[in-house]
């Protein structure tokens, strides 16, 4: 009996958690993400910080030695700005094209995520905004890793 009660109470908690999943819709919040990231200027600083963390990270900095870092910074800033719902247009190559031949690993991808997380921490970007940006970037994993 108490077992049944316990199961019921756990199921109630779980279903309450599941209902909030349905209730909160992620749509129409992209523009507020652009705002939360500090708009165009904030995103440019964020991408600069990101690249500085990348340069320090022995796991991935070798991938960045022979590239035009200023162009990369510009394209990254455009891309994040557009993704976040800002008034920008990404003018770079698609993710598959730009990463083909690099043979990137999961470790590489995660190292970049960690560099971004540290950069966002430094800019005092809220946990919620950080998560929303990461959720927009995570689907690119398949286009970037193992190409």
């Amino acid at each position: 009996m108490t077992s049944l009660l316990k199961l019921t109470s756990t199921m109630l908690v779980v279903s309450a958690m599941a209902m909030t999943l349905v209730a909160v819709s992620p749509s129409a919040r992209a523009n507020s993400l652009y705002h939360d990231l500090g708009e165009r200027e904030g995103i440019e600083i964020l991408m600069e910080d990101l690249l500085l963390y990348v340069a320090e990270d022995k796991r991935i900095n070798h991938h960045f030695v022979d590239i035009d870092i200023l162009r990369l910074h510009e394209k990254l800033s455009e891309q994040i700005c557009e993704l976040a719902g800002g008034p920008c247009v990404y003018t770079g190559d698609d993710m598959v094209t730009s990463h083909t031949g690099m043979d990137l690993t999961n470790t590489d991808f995660n190292a970049l995520v960690e560099a971004l997380q540290k950069a966002m921490d430094d800019r005092n970007i809220s946990v919620g905004a950080q998560n929303r940006l990461l959720a927009l970037l995570a689907p690119m994993h398949g286009d970037i890793v193992g190409r």
């Binding site: 992620p26 919620g128 959720a135």
Partner: peptide, 8 residues
Amino acid sequence: WLAGPFDR
């Protein structure tokens, strides 16, 4: 889920 309910 990276950004689930409450953006958590």
